[in-house]
Amino acid sequence: MKIIDSHCHIDRVDLDQFGGSMESMLAHAKDLSVEEFLCVCIDLEHFDDVFSLAKAHQQIYASVGVHPVE
């Protein structure tokens, strides 16, 4: 079964446990059947970071919106 994480903040993942590597983290996720990610950005200030991840990794998609408490 292919799993899609439809709401994550992958730009804020502590990569230390993956040797500092986004590729290693994505490979680990794929081993657990998580193959695609919708990375949700809650402000424009950090959108460039999220969008850069989406451009660099075909399995990451970017979105941006305003959090309801902001």
Rank of each mutant, 00 (worst) to 15 (best):
G20I: 08
K2M: 11
I3K: 13
Y61T: 12
D11L: 02
D16N: 15
A62R: 07
E35Y: 01
L15K: 05
S52E: 10
E23I: 09
A54Y: 02
E35R: 06
G19N: 07
D16S: 15
K30A: 13
C41K: 02
V66D: 09
D5N: 00
A54E: 02
E35H: 12
L32E: 10
K2Q: 14
C41R: 04
D48E: 14
G65E: 00
G20S: 06
S52G: 11
M1C: 10
D43A: 14
I42D: 11
K2T: 11
D14K: 09
Q58H: 13
E45Y: 07
V64N: 02
D16M: 11
S6F: 08
L32T: 01
I4N: 08
D48C: 12
L38E: 04
D11F: 00
V34I: 11
M22N: 08
M1A: 06
V66Y: 07
I10N: 02
M25A: 15
D43H: 13
I10E: 01
D16H: 12
L38P: 12
S21I: 10
Q59F: 02
K30R: 12
V66K: 10
A29Q: 05
Q59W: 02
H28V: 09
L15D: 05
S33G: 06
C8A: 00
D31A: 13
E23H: 08
K55D: 07
M25F: 14
I3A: 13
G19W: 05
H9M: 02
V50M: 07
M25P: 08
S33M: 07
